[in-house]
Design a protein around this nucleic acid. Structure first.
Lengths: 122, 122
DNA sequence: CTGTATCCGTGTGGATACTG
DNA sequence: CAGTATCCACACGGATACAG
């Protein structure tokens, strides 16, 4: 049985939709390589379970690469695959629109803010 | 209490996230104005309930405008607001990435396809 | 440090019937 | 034609505990 889509975005949502995947991918878009615990710091709201399950699914569709180092203590690093890097324009535009939207809401007097613990870590 | 975000995309997802909102917005991005029943034809999978509820939420955040005409039979038209039109780059990139992803999967031998009942209706 | 397993509440979303 | 109101199932996702 054939799976059909009526508009391109349906396929996009199916792959990178949901509450956490876009966030995970955006961080990977900014950092090149991220360890598990770094994710838990970058995304304070996510649970262990969600983090691994979402990463596994992104791995399945070939967007994320998982690298395990046989060390003690164990070390696992995640990064975008070549195919995943094709998401860069998508992720950039999703991020910047959100930043602008937050700006707008601040100007509207809402009590929101953006904590950019993300960039310029090095 | 202040609402905080750690990365811009979190705000984006909060507003246009979910299973249907991106699809609805993409269609509005293509058509300028859409009637309720046209939506139900463009998005065969959506239920009446979901369609109206998602449209209401998009109206709430100021992305979609709802126009009611006092006619018999009743006519309601939806369109993007000025602010909603700022989503255009986001929606375009979401659509085209999905189209390319479907292409890729077809080349990989998967039984999927994109039915473009969407454009060139006129 | 990283990852699994389990339990369980809740929101999302579907089906149906009904109103203006 | 457009929208509301119920009822209800299920998967999403959180909390916790445990394992390699």
């Amino acid at each position: 049985m054939q799976k059909t889509y009526n508009i391109g975005v349906e396929a996009t949502i199916e792959v990178i939709g949901g509450k956490w995947k876009p966030v995970i991918l955006c961080h990977l878009n900014h950092h090149a390589t991220i360890r598990t615990n770094e994710f838990r710091r970058l995304i304070p709201g996510i649970s262990q379970k969600m983090l691994t399950s979402q990463l596994r699914e992104l791995e399945q569709v070939g967007l994320v690469k998982r690298t395990v180092y046989n060390e003690v203590p164990p070390r696992v690093e995640y990064s975008l695959t070549e195919y995943g890097k094709e998401l860069e324009p998508v992720l950039n535009v999703l991020c910047t629109w959100g930043e602008n939207h937050i700006e707008k809401r601040i100007l509207d007097g809402e009590d929101v803010c953006l904590i950019k613990s993300d960039n310029e870590i090095a």
